[in-house]
């Protein structure tokens, strides 16, 4: 499969969205809304759920599943208030010492006048910084598109997993092609050059695990199994140890002489 085919697969209609994962992996999901500052951003869903006999905080970037809900959810491109809602829920998870599980699927943080005037850059920066130091386990799963800073703002975690056909990139192949090759039609080459597939991510150490995309029920089953062993592992660590492990995980990425 070519890199661009992974990109198309990651964007394909009918692909499972965050809400599918949340409803199939957890039970008793209760959605919690709003950033307490400006608004409730529907591009990000978050709340509480049960995983076995454990309460967890789940947060996902939601693209929507049909035309109406896609528009409603701004096609999964979050505004600053979305990231601030996510951060609020993560701080709440830290307070009650419950793990955070994030599902990431976005072409990127929304770019528009409102997003900029409410501090998109600041919101993403703050999320990254706070997640780096959060004293509770974080697991992020890239389920579709991992679009740049908008994806990273929910993907600073103790473990990052990735679905086989998901992609993770600093810029969209189309964006890269139009900037570097001055031709958006060169996206296929850009996708190849950017090295954005799950295999590439595993090789770079950016993700820890690839989840194979078998029939969806089996994929959910795999994630449930992986989550239960990962949470057992991570919940045995203290808050300080978790933050330390997370820091070291990112510290070695692209450290000089090791790549």
């Amino acid at each position: 499969m070519k890199a661009i085919e992974y990109v198309y697969a990651a964007r394909a209609k009918g692909r499972c969205t965050s809400l599918d994962f949340i409803s199939n992996i957890f039970t008793d999901f209760i959605e919690l809304h709003g950033d307490r500052r400006f608004a409730d951003d529907k591009a990000i869903v978050g709340g509480l759920a049960r995983f076995g006999n454990m309460t967890v905080t789940v947060i996902g970037i939601e693209k929507g599943q049909d035309t109406r809900s896609r528009i409603d959810r701004n096609f999964g491109s979050a505004h600053p208030e979305g990231y601030r809602k996510a951060l609020r829920l993560m701080k709440q998870a830290e307070k009650f010492r419950r793990p955070v599980i994030c599902f990431v699927d976005t072409s990127g943080a929304y770019c528009g006048i409102g997003a900029e005037e409410r501090g998109q850059g600041q919101a993403i920066s703050e999320n990254i910084m706070e997640m780096m130091d959060l004293k509770t386990p974080i697991i992020s799963i890239l389920i579709g598109e991992g679009g740049s800073g908008g994806a990273l703002a929910l993907a600073v975690a103790n473990e990052v997993w990735m679905l086989e056909k998901a992609v993770y990139s600093v810029i969209s192949p189309e964006g890269c092609a139009s900037i570097l090759y001055k031709d958006p039609k060169m996206a296929e080459k850009a996708a190849e050059d950017l090295k954005l597939t799950s295999d590439d991510m595993l090789k770079f150490g950016v993700v820890d695990k690839i989840i194979s995309e078998s029939p969806r029920n089996i994929t959910f089953h795999i994630i449930r199994n992986e989550l239960s062993s990962a949470l057992r592992r991570l919940c045995a660590l203290s808050g300080e140890e978790l933050a330390e492990q997370r820091y070291k995980r990112y510290r070695v990425l692209g450290s000089h002489g090791t790549v």
């Binding site: 910084m129 780096m132 993770y168 810029i171 950017l194 590439d200 990112y250 510290r251 990425l253």
Partner: peptide
């Protein structure tokens, strides 16, 4: 912004640097 030519590893620098900023601040 992030340097496209270093792909995902340049994105990861956002997390790495902010981690160090956070520790400095703490």
């Amino acid at each position: 912004g992030a340097r496209m030519q270093e792909g995902i590893l340049s994105l990861m620098q956002m997390a790495k640097t902010n981690g160090a900023v956070s520790r400095h601040g703490k």
